[in-house]
Design a protein around this nucleic acid. Structure first.
Lengths: 209, 209
DNA sequence: CAAGTGCATACTACTGAGTATGTTGTTGAC
DNA sequence: GTCAACAACATACTCAGTAGTATGCACTTG
């Protein structure tokens, strides 16, 4: 477990705000186009505050990335163990994933950006390790879906397909939400739920027996 | 028709090289993280050459973007008019799209990046118009799929689904290729064809009657 | 041979990451 | 109750990188 946060505030008003604001900026402008001053300005603060908690812009990005991944796990893992055949559980997982993508749009946009950084020139060895760590976590996340896909094939509820490719395609359809989805101002939880169901239904019907 | 290229070389050795190299750089590092000097260095040249043809980095990016879109149209439009029901034509279009995403990985990665630039602070009014133009072209491209989806619903070969959402999900599954697909060194056209077929089959089975 | 093309070279002006240092509260030891 | 240490920032720098420009120079073309 590598720790890039210098400190974690106990009152939850410092670090969490930085993380949230950074996620917003990274979502809107991307990693490179976002300056630390941008984040600070939006926080109503200065660089000093950010560099007090994070030793570099990259570390800040990685921490947002990690938070985004954690939220995905928290959304998907609980529904993984529900009753039902493989296809039933897969549907619940995909729906939870889609909901998480919309609810935590900023953080998950950073996760998506992170995918492109695999080959990034992470300067320090520490950052390299952190990045590899994040990649491993994302692999584990993808693995959850592959596992349930396989269980579905085994119990006959899912067609005999190439699991690796199907997983990438299905997750792609959902992750693509971070590209085009922007919350409407008057949008309710129900609206998001409807949208998630529709996307997932199409994907599930594509693999169901 | 707004023209951002100052000149187009007739021998096809100047501009095309710049475009290709720029696409590579933009794919690997993204727009902001790519410097004009990066592109020039990779070309074995200097900034002078690039600024001779393009008046700004943004204009260069837009031209790569436009080329990427044109290649998508050239891949998809021809197969749109083949014989067959809606679902048959849709499958052919999606497959052509997937193949184009892999064959022109660099250019299409730029197209995907361009999606995020909708809200970009395009400085000059000229650039604003060019960007709006590109957005319109992309809308038209998405429209092709929606149209055939609708025709499929009408002729009964496709289930009665929400066309707009299904189109986004299906195209998302395919566009996601630009995130994870990297050509293997010993990869053949057949390998790509197989991959495309598998992704598309899952998507088609999700909407077929 | 004059005008323009196709670049390279050599600048400028600015942004932006990271640092060094100051300043104000807070906390715990005695 | 006080004082030293430290947390939580703000301020004021440095310096490398980078977009864009100005200019020079060989080579081609009408």
């Amino acid at each position: 477990m590598i720790e890039n946060r210098r400190q974690v505030r106990t009152d939850g008003t410092g670090n969490a705000d930085i993380l949230e604001t950074a996620a917003q900026c990274f979502m809107e402008q991307g990693f490179s186009a976002t300056s630390i001053d941008d984040v600070a300005r939006r926080l109503g603060a200065t660089k000093g505050r950010i560099y007090h908690y994070y030793s570099s812009k990259t570390d800040l990005f990685f921490d947002v990335h990690r938070e985004g991944l954690e939220r995905l796990f928290q959304a998907v893992e609980p529904v993984m163990g529900i009753e039902g055949s493989g296809v039933v559980r897969l549907r619940a997982m995909l729906t939870a994933h889609a909901m998480a993508m919309m609810t935590n749009a900023a953080f998950e946009a950073v996760v998506v950006q992170g995918v492109h950084m695999h080959r990034m020139a992470a300067t320090t060895p520490d950052q390299r390790r952190t990045l590899d760590d994040l990649i491993a976590i994302r692999r584990r996340f993808e693995g959850l879906f592959k596992q349930v896909l396989q269980e579905g094939v085994d119990d006959g509820s899912i067609r005999n397909i190439d699991i690796s490719i199907s997983a990438k395609a299905m997750l792609g359809a959902i992750n693509w939400l971070s590209v085009w989805y922007r919350p409407a101002s008057d949008e309710t939880e129900m609206d998001r739920q409807m949208l998630a169901e529709r996307i997932v239904t199409t994907q599930i019907d594509g693999v169901r027996s």
